[in-house]
Design a protein around this nucleic acid. Structure first.
Lengths: 142, 142
DNA sequence: GTTATTAGTCAAGCTCCTTGACCATCTGAC
DNA sequence: GTCAGATGGTCAAGGAGCTTGACTAATAAC
């Protein structure tokens, strides 16, 4: 199997398994795209415009996504310190719990890889991928 | 950087670069989803239903995708030998040329990884990913 | 203080996928 | 042979999620 095909197949599998794991942990109404947003919001929150850049979509699309995760209780809007135009979007407790659930699900999948490859090779895989990973926006994986 | 994040970032980058490479070689009106279809059609063609299973979408969606790539000259419908209900969708010369262009673009990207990691590590990466790659449908990577 | 830029939202439209209905053909039981 | 159910494919309608365009409020540049 070609490298490209294997990489894309593994990435698709990973995205799907994480999503299933998150749903299995009781978080509903969530799509993979939301998870990619949570990654950006998690450290200290972000503005709609920053989120749009992270996801590689227009700020209108990011605004709609924020509206949705706010409505579902995963995030909330706060006034931005130092810029009255902007609003800081931060995760709620439920948003953090969902993020942790996604990390657990991801760890489970990686665990199945470790069973196939061994711990050492998984570390090598991680190190190699880290060295070729780009810095740009992270796009939802389907 | 976590393994999951690196993997998804690399996969997103790969998909985007392949798409850009295909466009740069003069093939327009094509999306990554079409490329995933070409992979299934390339060896000996496939029916709409088989293609739908490969892509993980409904057969209606696959039928619309086939309609689109036929209209754009990348594939054509032929009577299916042995089943008058079914139609075999096969790539045209242009479809094959586009597939080769995608392979060239993919090889270019892998070449940039080889420059970062070295040939040996890229081979190791390929071998490891091949061992954990699933067999199921390949989903478009954004 | 005026002007240009930036953050965010509203509205309309497009693309691609879904569900539901339908016809044509194949398969298997009788 | 024939008839019921399964299967391949398409048509039609609707929805989710993205885009472009227009707009307001606040900031930054000068």
């Amino acid at each position: 199997m070609a490298l490209s095909a294997a990489l894309l197949a593994v990435a698709g599998e990973l995205t799907q398994r994480i999503h299933e794991g998150v749903v299995a942990r009781g978080f509903e109404g969530i799509r993979p795209a939301h998870g990619f947003a949570f990654v950006r919001l998690a450290p200290d929150g972000a503005t709609v415009t920053e989120l749009a850049a992270h996801l590689g979509v227009t700020k209108q699309a990011a605004s709609q996504l924020v509206e949705e995760i706010v409505r579902k209780g995963y995030a909330e809007r706060r006034p931005h310190p130092g810029d009255a135009r902007a609003r800081l979007v931060v995760l709620t407790g439920q948003g953090w719990a969902c993020t942790r659930a996604a990390e657990e699900a991801a760890a489970e999948v990686v665990g199945t890889w470790a069973a196939l490859l061994g711990e050492g090779e998984v570390r090598a895989l991680s190190e190699q991928l880290g060295r070729i990973a780009p810095y740009g926006p992270i796009r939802p994986a389907w």
